[in-house]
């Protein structure tokens, strides 16, 4: 049923890097500085020994210094990947992970000064990486891990005080628009990705049947703890409708059309217990 695999953040992933910039001193002649640093940067990123005439050390060749910078560049990105994808590293082993990381880094440079932004595309990369394709669940586990990583760093928002919801009169229930915490993500997969992920946590169980079918993972955060749990197809369908701006009435009607046994009250409370609701408004349209 869940042949697709997709990361469904309730808000788009933060744009990496660059963004909103201003030129502070446009009159300033920066050409020489720019050109030397652009050449320096190229040598570092490509990692090719190039005889740059403008850098030197009295004690070793410039190539050695460049190599240190190149190694730092790749090492920092590799550490960032290992930090964001600890389960992938466990699944494939440290050596294979290093090889994967090298391949990934050669295709994906960094465009953010924060290393926590680096590595978003690893899931897609694993779908096309020939050696990694032997483990077809890797891309979805990577997407789950990236969602956890983003959830960990997502902006803080206080959870909704449910007492406020109880003040809404019954005839207004259908018009409630719930706001979802920025650390909330849904990842679905034809593989048991939640079981795979949990198996590689401390005290995880290693009894996994890869043929046991797909799972939908809900990622959320309460204060400083990221939670990963499996949710059912009807819960996911309904939450997705809410995330996409449907009010409770519209989300529930459309869910019941596909899943006649959907239980609204329990689903609402389950998500509330995970701190997924942050606020609500009332209205017929969002």
């Amino acid at each position: 049923m869940y042949s697709d695999s997709s990361l469904e953040p309730n808000q788009s992933l933060p744009l990496q890097g660059r963004g909103n910039v201003v030129v502070l001193n446009s009159k300033f002649k920066m050409n020489a500085l720019h050109d030397e640093l652009a050449e320096f940067s190229h040598a570092i990123i490509k990692g090719v020994p190039s005889s740059l005439g403008f850098v030197a050390s009295p004690h070793y060749s410039a190539d050695i210094g460049l190599e240190v910078y190149s190694n730092n560049y790749r090492g920092n990105l590799q550490d960032a990947l290992a930090g964001a994808y600890p389960v992938i590293e466990q699944l494939v082993g440290a050596d294979f992970f290093r090889q994967l990381a090298r391949g990934f880094i050669s295709l994906h440079g960094s465009c953010s000064a924060s290393l926590f932004d680096y590595g978003a595309e690893l899931g897609d990369f694993l779908e096309h990486d020939e050696p990694a394709r032997a483990l077809p669940y890797l891309p979805d586990v990577a997407k789950l891990e990236w969602a956890c990583h983003r959830a960990y760093f997502a902006t803080d928002v206080e959870p909704l005080n449910l007492a406020r919801l109880s003040q809404v009169s019954a005839d207004e229930y259908a018009n409630i628009f719930l706001k979802v915490h920025p650390a909330c993500y849904i990842v679905r997969s034809p593989f048991p990705i939640v079981a795979l992920w949990q198996a590689h946590q401390p005290q995880g169980s290693f009894e996994i049947n890869l043929a046991s079918g797909g799972e939908i993972a809900l990622i959320s955060r309460q204060r400083d703890v990221v939670n990963v749990r499996e949710i059912t197809p009807d819960e996911a369908y309904w939450l997705r409708a809410v995330i996409h701006g449907k009010n409770l009435g519209m989300a529930t009607v459309s869910t019941l059309e596909t899943f006649p046994t959907f239980d609204l009250q329990n689903t609402l409370l389950l998500f509330a217990s995970l701190g997924i609701w942050t606020d609500f408004t009332l209205g017929e349209t969002s």
Binding site: N25, F28, S41, N72
Partner: peptide
């Protein structure tokens, strides 16, 4: 950062008068 490429490291640059004005601003 140069031309949008970020190198997540602390990189040196020439200590020129032009660079001084740039960094000071």
């Amino acid at each position: 950062t140069v031309n949008g490429d970020v190198i997540n490291d602390l990189l040196p640059f020439p200590h020129t008068h032009a660079a001084l004005a740039h960094v000071a601003s």
